[in-house]
Design a protein around this nucleic acid. Sequence first.
DNA 1: TCAAAAGTGTTAACTGTACACCCATGC
DNA 2: GCATGGGTGTACAGTTAACACTTTTGA
Lengths: 228, 228
Amino acid sequence: MSQAKKILPRLTIDNVIFAYADKQLSVLLIKHGEGRSKGQWGLPGDWLGINESLEERAAISLFDRTGLKNIKLQQLQTFSAVDRYPGKRIITTAFYTLIKQNVQKIKPSDDELAVNWIPVNKVPKLIFDHKVILKHALKHLRTQVRHVPIGLDLLPKKFTLLELQDLYEALLDRSFDKPNFRRKILKLHYLIDCKESIKAGKHRPAALYSFDRAAYKSLIKKGFSFSL
Amino acid sequence: MSQAKKILPRLTIDNVIFAYADKQLSVLLIKHGEGRSKGQWGLPGDWLGINESLEERAAISLFDRTGLKNIKLQQLQTFSAVDRYPGKRIITTAFYTLIKQNVQKIKPSDDELAVNWIPVNKVPKLIFDHKVILKHALKHLRTQVRHVPIGLDLLPKKFTLLELQDLYEALLDRSFDKPNFRRKILKLHYLIDCKESIKAGKHRPAALYSFDRAAYKSLIKKGFSFSL
DNA sequence: TCAAAAGTGTTAACTGTACACCCATGC
DNA sequence: GCATGGGTGTACAGTTAACACTTTTGA
């Protein structure tokens, strides 16, 4: 990144930015355009500045690539193996988040050849230990999904239960029994029945729901155990 | 610590070392003997060396204070707020573990006034953000306890179910129904009935159990959900 | 005989899971 | 009519949680 900031040597952040769209989970990867890793894929990362926390830098780095603000990035782990980076001692702290996929706005910075959403099951070889970091993030995401509600900011304001189920199925890479999924979700009481329905094809119209933000947020704090 | 090592500036580790003994959960704290934090309590920490990972330094630091080797420390999180350390920019990575309390062997290093096991509900004011780190660790430990087996290396080779229950109750700071606890644990099939019993006071002797190491380790991988 | 901890049994409420089946729509 | 996804009912197995009860010991 070509920012006018004083950086701390040796310290970086790497963001694992998952995105959901079209029943598919992808991750943001960049193709390096300079230096020894030219032409290779890796996670979007950045140097830590002297006057910012890791969290702050991770958020700025996310904004630079996607234009998104106020997204909560979760700190995953710090990777500090002596030989993780060729030739230099670089320690990185990994963050991750899950957002709605937006193809238009992403852009590479000066020293990058490309920035792309890559489906998680089609990720190419990555530089350094980035594959390890990605796997770690995915595991964390999948655990998370079963303990706090998700979907806010990922689905349209009003959505059907099937759309929510599609999201869960994409994230966890498995399918759920429809009737049981409905009941399980509805019993958590974080959805509001919009009392509307949407016609979509040659079948019964689906009821629309929206998130009850208060209930949603309190469920984040309390947590639950979603099995199915 | 007065080690002959080249350190990386700005980077430290802090260990949250929990210990169990006498139905009580304690944490290892040190009283600083030099510098601006003289006389104050804090978590045992150390500078990261140029030729070691954070994990390696955390393990060495644990060994220095307790004489314990081959203890798996879990990385918790990295704390990097710009103002977390007065006057300097210091970034720390926190680790935690849970061991059997051993009062004899712990020793302060040259620049420390004291090293002590302090019961977790009697922790004094701590320096910097160490109280936040400790709370974070405790929360993590309590989550952990409900998803993987614990007790190996904390209880004697042969132990009663009540001793195991005491451990759980101390860690989670609550009590369990004895009959239900028994059944719940036994159904996980990671205990071996030693076919012995121990007389301890004016009541029926208790059956002794030991851990089935293979089952125990495979349960760590598989995980479970312990509610009660 | 009594207290104390060890250990068994029983029940009611709730969950997980599978799957049968009806509903509303477009073609 | 019938295919398609939307949605309800049900039934069995297993789990949770509370608590009554019996057992074995030492004093």
